[in-house]
Computed example of a mutant assay.
Amino acid sequence: METKQFTTDEIGEAAELIRQGELIAFPTETVYGLGANALDEQAVKQVYTVKGRPSDNPLIVHVSDFEMVTQYVTDFPKHTKSLVDAFWPGPLTLIFDVKPTTFSTTVTGGLNTVAFRMPNNLKTIELIKEAHVPLVGPSANTSGKPSPTTAKHVYHDLHGKIAGILDDGPTQIGVESTVLDLTTKNGVPVVLRPGAITKEQLEQVVGKVTLDQHLITEKEAPKAPGMKYKHYSPDVPVWIIDGDKDVFDKAINWAKSKNQRIGLFTSDRITSAFSTEVTAIFSFGEDTVEQGTKLLFAGLRSLDEQNIDVIFAQAFPESELGIAYMNRLKKAANQKILKIDSIFE
Rank of each mutant, 00 (worst) to 15 (best):
N141S: 10
D181R: 00
K223S: 10
K145H: 15
E13C: 10
H132C: 14
R19Y: 12
E286R: 15
H62F: 11
V289T: 15
I262P: 02
T93N: 05
E22A: 15
G35Q: 02
V73W: 00
F87E: 03
N120K: 10
M227H: 09
L329V: 14
Y155Q: 12
T271L: 07
I197F: 11
V47I: 14
V154N: 04
S283W: 06
T149D: 05
F76P: 00
F265C: 14
T105W: 05
I343S: 15
S272W: 10
P189Y: 05
V190M: 09
A313E: 11
T3C: 04
V188F: 03
F87D: 01
N121Q: 05
D85P: 01
P225L: 13
V247D: 03
A298N: 15
A163D: 01
P170K: 12
V238C: 09
L211S: 03
E220V: 10
A280Y: 09
E320Q: 14
I240W: 01
I308D: 08
W254N: 02
D242N: 15
A163T: 04
T70C: 01
T74W: 00
T93C: 03
F76T: 02
D97N: 11
H159T: 13
G169S: 03
S342L: 06
T108C: 02
V114S: 05
V278Y: 02
G299T: 12
Y72T: 07
S267G: 14
H214P: 00
D304G: 11
G110I: 07
H62G: 04
T106K: 06
T124W: 06
V190G: 04
S139R: 00
V84C: 06
T150V: 00
D246M: 05
G110S: 13
V205Q: 03
T178N: 07
D85Y: 06
Q20F: 14
A315R: 10
P194D: 11
T279H: 13
E277T: 06
G322C: 11
A221I: 14
V236A: 14
S257W: 00
H231G: 07
Q204M: 08
E320C: 04
M326C: 10
P194Y: 05
F282E: 13
K208A: 08
D75R: 04
Y155E: 08
E318G: 08
R117H: 03
H79T: 06
N141F: 06
L122M: 12
I281V: 15
F6A: 02
T70I: 03
E277C: 06
D75H: 05
G90L: 02
